[in-house]
């Protein structure tokens, strides 16, 4: 066979020595791709912004608001459960869709404990101020009467400065 490695013609051997011992992998397209990707990612990179626990199954509404989220206690209200700072506080909301009561005891207790801890810290740490800020992420399909209960409970538990987290819309 002509293709046998031992039976190489003189021309083939010369070409081999011109290219070097091994033919290199062409890195240029890879570098091109990386450069484009890097520029795209750098452009979409945002330095500001607040990290949030994104709870599952929550589709927040969209808004034209441009206000930045501030660090705060985070309450996430999905259709069937409520999280505080990423931890499940109430895991069956079904009853609250019909209940007339405004206070959610489990949520109130959790938030009140946090408020008490913050107030205690305020006494000890000189530059720390408890502002009563709270961020609420809620699912867009949630009816107002469930949201209302969460808002009232947060307000009662010494978190009166409420912001709603939303997705930005252009």
């Amino acid at each position: 066979m002509a293709q046998e490695p031992t039976a190489r013609t003189g021309r083939a051997r010369r070409a081999q020595s011109l290219l070097g011992e091994r033919s290199p992998i062409l890195l240029t397209p890879l570098v091109d791709m990386f450069t484009i990707l890097l520029i795209f990612l750098l452009l979409s990179y945002s330095t500001g912004g607040q990290l949030m626990y994104m709870a599952q199954n929550i589709l927040m509404p969209e808004s034209v608001s441009r206000e930045q989220l501030e660090p705060a206690v985070e309450v996430a209200v999905a259709k069937d459960r409520i999280y505080v700072n990423g931890e499940v506080v109430m895991d069956n909301l079904a009853g609250w869709y019909t209940d007339k009561k405004l206070l959610m005891p489990a949520l109130y207790e959790n938030l009140k404990k946090k408020a008490l801890k913050f107030k205690e810290m305020e006494q000890k740490v000189p530059l720390f101020h408890f502002t009563g800020k709270i961020t609420i992420q809620a699912d867009r399909a949630l009816p107002f009467h469930v949201l209302k209960k969460v808002l009232y409970t947060a307000d009662r538990a010494d978190f009166p400065r409420i912001s709603l987290a939303v997705y930005q819309r252009d």
Binding site: L41, S44, Y45, M52, R66, Y152, I162, L164, Q168
Partner: peptide, 19 residues
């Protein structure tokens, strides 16, 4: 950068309760 990329930007809406 891929890990820290933000595809959905979040914003805040301040609400006041009457109380």
């Amino acid at each position: 950068l891929l890990l820290s990329a933000v595809f959905e930007r979040l914003a805040a809406l301040q609400v006041h309760l009457p109380e």
